[in-house]
Design a protein around this nucleic acid. Structure first.
Lengths: 158, 158
DNA sequence: ATTGAAAGGGTGTCGAT
DNA sequence: ATCGACACCCTTTCAAT
């Protein structure tokens, strides 16, 4: 079971994994060495998967995001496998979710500009038969937060 | 201007920011110290924003994701400000995008289970008048990749 | 079982060549 | 770009609670 302290540590790390153990220790009222062990445990127990760099999309000229919802024409294991291979092979498609309801999949696509959407569109429809239900461009990134750890059940304290 | 090497370094770091300088050096054929300076530059120039820990949602009991599209009832600066405050205040709403089309927003909501959606729904409609156009639950996370750095323009080499 | 203090080792950083 | 020295931080050990 996780303690409040563990959650506090996770919250610090999901915002900035470069935070030194001494600074984490100050925040959660623990010595650096104790923090080190806790973090190692959190890793071993699978709470922390890995650390990654957050890159600046605009700076890299990848400031355009498009969300696309698609539905399958046919529902078969073969179609699904084909679809997965297709989205996996196209790097501009950065996220794919299978959804409930009539819309089957949601795709998040990252591009230099809206003009490049056509290429991705053609690339995917060439590979797999599907209906693009809707596509809309992101005008503004309003919120981007970490996981709501305040809602994770935890041991009473200590 | 970025070099191919810089992009290769960024690609390593966006997948695993714990990669040691010596390993990065092997991959991009550079000495560790040279990598260190390049990374420092990439930071200073704003390409790397920060490093964060990727947490395991299922392990934390936050395995449920819901995507919700909403539209504004009224279109005013006041409504928008109010909407922003509302989504900012609700931690389960982890991502918010303003989209093209009618004044549409896409919300990504992270929850312990689908039963908790109601609370978030009530919390937000209590704060701001809006139409929830559609809500669908994520059945499966099919792809989750980093930015497509292969499409970033770069200096020819060196 | 978990903690804090101190020691040891590794790694990143900076300067010089 | 490499080499070397320094500094910092993380990790481990150990005693204590």
């Amino acid at each position: 079971m996780l303690t409040q302290r563990d959650l506090a540590i996770l919250d610090v790390l999901q915002k900035d994994s470069d935070t030194s153990l001494s600074k984490i220790g100050e925040k959660v009222h623990l010595s650096p060495s104790a923090c080190s062990r806790r973090i190692a445990n959190l890793r071993d127990e699978g709470y922390i998967r890995r650390n990654v760099a957050v890159l600046d999309r605009d700076r890299l000229g990848l400031g355009t995001t498009v969300f696309v919802t698609v539905s399958a024409r046919i529902h078969s294991a073969e179609w699904t496998a084909n679809f997965r291979r297709a989205v996996e092979a196209i790097p501009e498609i950065v996220e794919v979710y299978r959804l409930t309801g009539s819309v089957d999949y949601l795709l998040k696509i990252v591009l230099p500009s809206v003009n490049d959407y056509d290429k991705v569109y053609n690339a995917i429809v060439a590979r797999v038969e599907m209906n693009v239900v809707h596509a809309s461009i992101v005008m503004e990134d309003i919120k981007h937060a970490g996981l709501p750890l305040s809602f994770v059940p935890h041991a009473s304290s200590r």
